[in-house]
Design a protein around this nucleic acid. Sequence first.
DNA 1: CTAACGTTTGATGCATGCAACAGCTTCTGG
DNA 2: CCAGAAGCTGTTGCATGCATCAAACGTTAG
Lengths: 213, 213
Amino acid sequence: MLDRVRRLVLSGGFSPGAPLSEVFLAQEFDVSRTPIRETLKQLQHEGLVEIRPKVGTFIREPTRREIVELFQLKESLEGLAAGLLARRGSVPELGVLEHNIEESDRAAVDQDATRYAALVHEFHRTIITGAENSKLVEHYDRLMNQLAYHRLVLRTAEHPGRIRASTGEHRAVLTMIRDKDHFGAEAAMRNHVHASAREVLTDARTAPVELSS
Amino acid sequence: MLDRVRRLVLSGGFSPGAPLSEVFLAQEFDVSRTPIRETLKQLQHEGLVEIRPKVGTFIREPTRREIVELFQLKESLEGLAAGLLARRGSVPELGVLEHNIEESDRAAVDQDATRYAALVHEFHRTIITGAENSKLVEHYDRLMNQLAYHRLVLRTAEHPGRIRASTGEHRAVLTMIRDKDHFGAEAAMRNHVHASAREVLTDARTAPVELSS
DNA sequence: CTAACGTTTGATGCATGCAACAGCTTCTGG
DNA sequence: CCAGAAGCTGTTGCATGCATCAAACGTTAG
């Protein structure tokens, strides 16, 4: 139930601020209001919706400031993941990551933005899960849900210049992991996420952003 | 409602694995099962309890591995916070932190472990909130809830040796923040959390721990 | 015309009741 | 004495109904 409602919210079918009536969702999923209510409370806890008591539930649009905050967190968490992965004894993910970058390159020259975005997502997620820290995965997922990934990133993926820079940064991260340089891997990943965040934030709107330094 | 039940769980009145019956909690707080159910679902999402479908809700004891994972995250998040704080233009928290360390020193010489632990907690929390990143605060709170702070840390605070080392590390962090050395502040904080985690983990049980490097 | 007020409406908040199921207990056949 | 099955019990899962309240609307006095 939770996943189904979450998917509905993240699908983008509703514009931010749109009301999510309990009775509507109940009819939509053919259940009673009770399980819907439980679900909405959890989604509120995830930051995806806002429940105004006695009024209703609304899809939450993160403010620009919150997006900056989320990217700061993303940078930290992904850096941690890359470092942990580089520290592991054997890293069976290396092959997957290598293959992913090759595919990404191909998608880049084909200008296939959708496929490229999917590959980038897979690259990052492979590193997160490869860190073998289940709590990190939980926090990361939570983070990415709030970032409403698709809306922001898919738009960015349409820029060819960004595509090239991104695969280069991915290669840098991969090299550090292969060399078991956990300090370098963390730095490379943080640099990559930082650059990517700056790109997304300057692209998404016109207002200037200070992400930090 | 959520806070009340959470406090009850964190109070330590129930041993890990103890069942949390909905009807019991409903009577305890003099409400019906419905709001209790909603609350438990959220606490499950926070990782504090485990809901076995059709069976019941139980207080969740994190495994040793999960505690290690949580400390890895803690190190990363607190490092981020210290760095962000050091980057801020003006840092009004400096006075509070300075005062806190002085009080901590006093509590240390008095061997007042409880007061010392409270001050340490306040020190860390001041830095977290001082980073001015609301999402970071959310994730941090979530993290600390799962760590069942009191149980692990209060025990550690009883070691005088650790007390002295800890205030020293606190001072190092504070100095870096005052100097606006965000790189150093992050490193100092991570070092401090790492050492503290190692202390807690080796103290809590007898088994050896590899936190990382 | 405007501002304040009462009314209406639509939603949530919660209590309650029933069905369904996991796990334990007990009974029975060997 | 033991293994397996049947039922028993306590719990959750969910539907439903009523009370409550916020916001919108219309009404009326000034």
